[in-house]
């Protein structure tokens, strides 16, 4: 084994979109040991995110993904932090250039991924979707319960600070509830899923709260095992989202399991209350790191 092999093999990544999500990704990626952030792709060179990218020495492309065609060797993996609409085109170009894509928009062209649940199935996918913040926070718990006792019905309630809900979320809030519900079923394993989102404008802003309810097959109900499975899952998610934690022990009532979670952001680019944005960017970075390790090992 050659010493320092891992450093030599850092995988190159780029971000499309220089808004809040893109800027937070920028901070997180600069800290990664397996990823090398080389490029920021945007459309407005005067935006705060683009200015910052320039300052820290990234290659800045200000004519969108088309600009990457001239220097495709700059990146191996791309994060798309634009919009669903823009993602369709971005993916088309990325596919032609042979780049792996991690989609943080609601477009959901590629399979849904939750790092602790199903990432290993999609390490070679050319496009994966990060579902929603509520999905990243709650699907692991549904899955953890479902591993012990089949979840007949899974429901989640995500409460986020009004300030952390961007214009995209606000303009299409149904997208959140519908996409998250699908994720609860497809990835969490619940037979039926439902999601609710609540915006709370309190000052100072509240940190993201999530409540997970699961109705499980009564015959398979095992409080101790479910609690253990949930706690282990929280630890796993916590390894890449440090502010992710249980508010109280899981509560049992007949065949109903209730789990209260909160997600405090890391405070990288976005304030700490914005745990909802933090868990998206942290999960996306985790996916890219696993992609990268997979590439290095192959």
């Amino acid at each position: 084994m050659v010493k320092g092999c891992a450093e030599l093999a850092k995988v190159k990544v780029g971000i499309i979109g220089s808004g809040n999500i893109g800027s937070d990704l920028m901070v997180k990626l600069m800290k990664s040991e397996v990823l090398e952030l080389t490029t920021m792709i945007g459309i407005d060179p005067t935006s705060r995110g683009m200015q910052h990218a320039k300052k820290i020495g990234l290659k800045v492309i200000d004519n969108g993904i088309d600009g990457l065609k001239e220097n495709p060797e700059l990146v191996d993996i791309l994060f798309d932090a634009t919009s669903a609409k823009a993602h369709y085109y971005n993916y088309e170009v990325a596919k032609k250039l042979g780049k792996q894509m991690i989609d943080l928009t609601p477009a959901a062209i590629g399979p849904f991924v939750v790092p602790t649940v199903n990432l290993t199935e999609h390490l070679d996918a050319d496009n994966v979707n990060m579902i929603t913040c509520g999905g990243q926070a709650t699907i692991p718990i549904i899955h953890a319960i479902n591993q012990v006792a089949p979840v007949e019905y899974g429901e989640i309630v995500a409460t986020i600070a009004s300030k952390s809900a961007g214009p995209g979320t606000r303009a299409n809030i149904d997208e959140f509830t519908q996409t998250t519900a699908k994720g609860i079923e497809r990835i969490g394993g619940a037979k039926k899923g439902k999601a609710i989102i609540i915006l709370n404008p309190a000052e100072p802003p509240i940190i993201m709260r999530n409540t997970v309810y699961a109705l499980v097959d009564e015959k398979a109900m095992d409080e101790e095992k479910i609690a253990k499975s949930v706690i282990e899952m929280v630890e796993k998610v916590n390894s890449y989202v440090p502010g992710y934690r249980l508010r109280t022990e899981p509560i049992f009532d007949g065949n109903k399991v209730t789990v209260f979670l909160e997600v405090e952001g890391a405070g990288h680019y976005l304030p700490t209350y914005a745990g909802n944005l933090d868990i998206m960017t942290a999960a996306a970075v985790k996916v890219a790191e696993e992609f990268a390790k997979n590439r290095i090992n192959v």
Binding site: V157, T159, I196, I198, N200, P201, A202, R209, T211, F260
Partner: peptide, 9 residues
């Protein structure tokens, strides 16, 4: 300062 819908609180 719970708002409507926050029954889980």
């Amino acid at each position: 300062k719970a708002v409507g819908g926050q029954e889980d609180m």
